[in-house]
Design a protein around this nucleic acid. Structure first.
Length: 649
RNA sequence: GCCGCGGUAGCUCAGUGGUAGAGCGCGUCAUUGGUAAUGACGAGGUCGAGAGUUCAAUUCUCUCUCGUGGCACCA
């Protein structure tokens, strides 16, 4: 056996990892939980029959967390079956920071059951049952699980490839089908686990199949790690844009317009600042901004293919003046013969703009940008604050170009998007090339060409990317830009999609050098994705403390005594005149009160003025997140804040 | 859309089979204070909607609706 440090040891064939660990040192044996044999993670109890490179895995190793969580899922499954006989087990994989297990039970679980389940889990851990691995005959295994009424498990075994042996892990009386590996005993799961939530989940992720009950849990090496993780969850909750949006008075939602934002003055400041910034960016990058209709006749959606592929997400309205008769139908029986739809995407409308007049190859590329307001009939359960809405504004644009120009345009876009994300505070960007989905328009040849076009552009731009099958849009492959926020979450925002289909379907063409008609290629692209969602991401990323140029209120002038009111009013007016979003707080309140209120309100700059400042024409600046009082002349402070409040572009 | 959990004052939430409470916020008054909550008083609620059970429902049951955690879908 060759150890990680290169040393080798000799054992009889059939020696187990545990025996080796014990042989190396008894203290190692105590903390060992698994073994890597030629790189593969295995049970310590597995007999080793050949010369191998081995490494004993202990609780301290990276793999330990995964094993603890997976074993914890088994412990939870047993606990649930002990407490709720008749519950069927299904699958229970690890996920980021924890695990879940899906159960089939007529009566779903509730979080009220957690206490009892956790208590039972602790008993099983304390029981210190060995995890024992067995290999069963396939048919016997199926018969066994069927006999126990475990139909889901039986189905899982039936679907395992013939080449796969059927592995069963026992822990005391209880057993489960499992690929393994497992630690030595339930005791090694430890005590640092907690059940977090219950949720419905479809069997095999298929909405036509049965709804199971999923229990989510988390497990860690130590109670301290668990505590730390729970603390992180609390912190993430504090950043929730729905909570902050409410506290900062940015926007609201109400049932009469579910999924659509009512922007309040302060929220709309952010919205406008961001829109203006993007407008300057795309103008600079050679785009022309346009605005296209909201409500468009169905004929165009049929021609574009949206009616066929996207209908279930569209709001469709009859093109008829409703009846004014109180008793009669609001629309006639013929209403549905002529339909219009609120646009769910801007692309067909942009093709219409492109198609006006005759375009020469000399005009290409043509880049049409729109802050396009789109409506999508999202499922009720999908709606989530600003992150998932029914009315959204995309920072959309379509580039019409020749095939030869695809690479240059794509490379240019990659540069633009990188600059924008960097300006907005996101430097960790993951790029995914999403390939053809099952339901799609266009021939395989066209898809081959489109996928390769984007791939080549990414290579030329020198960017690292991953490819994902089946994730593309129905009309073309796409590059997805995923940004990572301050607390490590990933969001898909920007996208670049190559489309040979739509220009064809909507018959767009340009006149080439040869004097003949040619089909342009269309690049769909967005940087923020949608303004709504991006603002939600920004709020959470900055925990509400937005960069100065986006802050709804950039400066509050707060007085200590009424004797400074006139001076405060004067400098407030000067700040406003200089373009600073300032507020004046001359309320009859103590300065402590004002400082607290504006700190909680995430105001970046507080200019505090009392009699002394009024006398000396200074301000005492208090910055958000700092206790320091920086006293300087107002003129200097004004120049500084004006400079600092400039947008990055 | 599916499964679970919720909806009580502007906000955050407590509570009860006999038509309601706290803190913050809001209003009035006093206080003019030096960097994260000054004090007193006051106003404010058909307890999400509808139906049922009951002498009596905010409370129990059902339906609907909206929100929420997931699933499915997705920017």
């Amino acid at each position: 056996m060759t150890l990680p440090d290169g040393a080798s040891r000799v054992y009889d064939a059939g020696v187990t990892g545990f025996e080796i660990a014990k042989d190396i040192s008894s203290s190692l044996a105590k903390i060992s939980i698994a073994i890597r044999i030629n790189g593969e993670l295995c049970d310590l109890s597995l007999p080793i029959t050949q010369d191998s490179d081995i490494a004993i895995v202990t609780r301290k190793d990276d793999e330990a967390l995964e094993m603890i969580r997976h074993d914890c899922a088994h412990v939870m499954a047993e606990a649930v079956q002990n407490l709720f006989p008749g519950t069927q087990v299904t699958i229970g994989p690890n996920i980021e920071n924890g695990f879940f297990y899906d159960f089939a039970r007529n009566e779903p679980f509730s979080t009220d059951d957690f206490e009892a389940i956790e208590k039972e889990m602790r008993k099983i851990v304390e029981r210190n049952s060995q995890f024992v691995r067995e290999v069963w005959d396939r048919d016997e295994a199926i018969a066994y699980f069927r006999g126990k009424g475990e139909n889901y498990k039986a189905e899982l075994i039936e679907d395992l490839p013939e080449s796969e042996s059927i592995k069963i892990y026992r822990q005391g009386e209880w057993l489960d089908l499992c690929r393994g590996p497992h630690m030595q005993s339930t005791k090694q799961v430890g005590t640092a686990f907690k059940l977090l939530k219950v949720a419905g989940a479809y069997w095999r992720g298929d909405s036509s199949k049965a709804m199971l009950t999923r229990i989510y849990g988390t497990a860690w090496r130590s109670d301290d790690e668990l505590k730390e993780y729970l603390h992180q969850l609390d912190e993430a909750e504090k950043r929730d844009h729905r909570k902050l949006g409410n506290e900062m008075d940015l926007y609201h939602f109400q049932p009469e317009a579910q999924g659509s934002v009512f922007w309040h003055p302060k929220g709309y400041v952010i919205y406008n600042a961001l829109e203006q910034y993007i407008r300057r960016r795309v103008n600079d990058a050679g785009y022309k901004e346009i605005k296209t209709p909201q409500l468009i006749d169905n004929k165009l959606w049929e021609a574009s293919g949206h009616w066929g592929k996207y209908r279930e997400n569209m709001f469709v309205v009859p093109d008829e003046i409703p009846s004014v008769d109180d008793d009669g139908p609001v629309v006639s029986e013929h209403a549905f013969e002529k339909l219009m739809a609120l646009k769910p995407m801007n692309c067909p409308a942009h093709v219409q703009v492109f198609k006006q007049g005759i375009t020469s190859y000399r005009d290409l590329p043509i880049r049409l940008a729109e802050f396009g307001c789109c409506h999508r009939n999202e499922a009720h359960g999908a709606l989530h604050g600003l992150m998932r809405v029914r009315q959204m504004t995309q920072d959309d644009a379509h580039i019409f170009c020749t095939e030869d120009q695809i690479t240059d345009e794509s490379v240019a876009f990659c540069g633009l998007i990188k600059d924008v994300y960097s300006d907005l505070g996101f430097d960790d960007v993951r790029i995914v090339l999403a390939l053809r989905p099952e339901s799609r328009a266009g021939s395989d040849e066209v898809w081959d060409k489109a996928e390769d076009g984007l791939r080549q552009a990414l290579i030329k731009a020198g960017l690292e990317f991953e490819e994902e099958e089946g994730e593309g849009a129905f009309y073309g492959p796409k590059i997805e830009y995923h940004i990572r926020d301050a607390i490590g979450r990933s969001w898909q925002c920007g996208t670049l999609q190559l489309d040979f289909v739509l220009p064809e379907r909507l018959d767009a063409h340009y006149i080439g050098e040869d004097g003949n008609k040619h089909r342009p290629v269309m690049l769909h692209r967005a940087i923020l994705g949608t303004l709504e969602r991006f603002i939600g991401i920004m709020i959470e990323n900055y925990a509400g403390k937005l960069p100065l140029w986006l802050a709804p209120v950039q400066c509050v002038v707060a007085t200590i005594t009424a004797s400074a009111d006139d001076y405060a009013r004067d400098i407030y007016e000067q700040l406003k005149a200089a373009g600073i979003r300032a507020e004046l707080d001359i309320r009859n309140e103590k300065i402590n009160y004002k400082v607290r209120e504006h700190s909680v309100g995430k105001v970046p700059n507080l200019f505090v003025v009392g009699a002394r400042e009024a006398e000396e024409k200074t301000v005492a600046i208090r910055r958000l997140g700092s206790q320091a009082q920086d006293v300087k002349s107002f003129d200097e402070a004004l120049a500084e804040i004006v400079d600092e409040a400039k947008a990055p572009f």
